[in-house]
Simulated assay, not measured.
Amino acid sequence: MSEIRVRVLDEDEWPTYRDVRLRALRESPEAFVASAEEEASFDDEVWRSRMERSRRLLAEDDGEVVGVVSVGTGHRTSIPGAGELFGLWVDPPRRGTGVARKLMEEAAAVGRDVGLRQLVYWVGTDNGRAVAFASSFGFRPTDDRRPMRIHGVDEDGAESEELMMVYPLGDHGGVPTSL
């Protein structure tokens, strides 16, 4: 395996983001609130505007896309100085190989660069692997919960729940600290 490279996509790279986002939605529909069918119908302008609202980080290995995550700069959370980490996805054969950690490290660096003091990450309470991973990185659970209805998965009326986790963005160079 070669070196994983994580980079922030430029706004004009919206087709790259669109492709990996749709790939993630198709591969892991249970992990996202949105559906691939819904987002595949979006016109180009929607994808362009998404690039303006958040930073999109792409993990690549020898030019092959192996993961993605987004960092919102405060428009989705009411916590002062907080941004939101969302849309984390890693290609299944690459899970457990450090790709997610590299994406999180770069997301934290991006958050610091734009002046955020913490990152908020909503994780499905039934997604033990994601909760454990976020905790190992330094995210801490809060008492905040919200309902989550996953398109194509929760169609029988059942709703899942998300847990808000928070990660402080101090001056520790990407090494997690406790709250």
Rank of each mutant, 00 (worst) to 15 (best):
I4E: 04
I4V: 15
I4W: 11
R5C: 09
V6P: 03
R7T: 02
V8H: 14
L9Q: 02
D10M: 07
D12T: 15
E13D: 12
P15Q: 10
Y17K: 01
R18S: 04
V20A: 02
R21N: 01
L22E: 10
L22Q: 02
R23C: 06
R26L: 12
E30Q: 12
E30Y: 02
A31H: 13
A34V: 08
S35H: 05
A36E: 11
E37N: 02
E37V: 13
E39K: 00
S41Q: 11
S41T: 12
S41N: 02
E45N: 13
V46K: 09
W47A: 04
R48S: 06
R48W: 05
R48L: 08
M51E: 07
E52L: 14
E52T: 13
R53K: 12
L58C: 01
A59G: 06
D62Q: 05
V68M: 01
S78Y: 13
S78L: 14
S78K: 13
S78P: 14
I79A: 11
A82Y: 11
A82V: 05
G83L: 06
E84H: 03
L85H: 00
F86M: 03
G87R: 05
G87Y: 02
P92K: 07
P92S: 09
T97P: 07
V99A: 07
V99W: 00
E105S: 09
E105Q: 06
V110H: 01
V110K: 04
R112G: 06
D113G: 12
V114S: 06
G115V: 03
L116C: 05
L116H: 11
Q118M: 10
L119A: 06
G124W: 08
T125I: 14
D126A: 10
G128N: 10
R129N: 00
A130S: 04
V131I: 04
A132Q: 11
F133A: 14
F133V: 10
F133G: 01
F133D: 07
F133H: 13
A134Y: 15
A134D: 09
S135I: 04
G138F: 15
R140F: 05
D144H: 11
R145K: 02
R145N: 02
M148Q: 09
H151A: 14
H151I: 05
V153A: 01
A158K: 12
E159F: 04
S160Y: 02
S160E: 01
E162Q: 14
M164F: 01
Y167M: 12
P168S: 08
G170H: 10
G170V: 11
D171M: 03
V175F: 09
V175H: 11
S178C: 02
L179T: 14
L179S: 14
L179W: 15
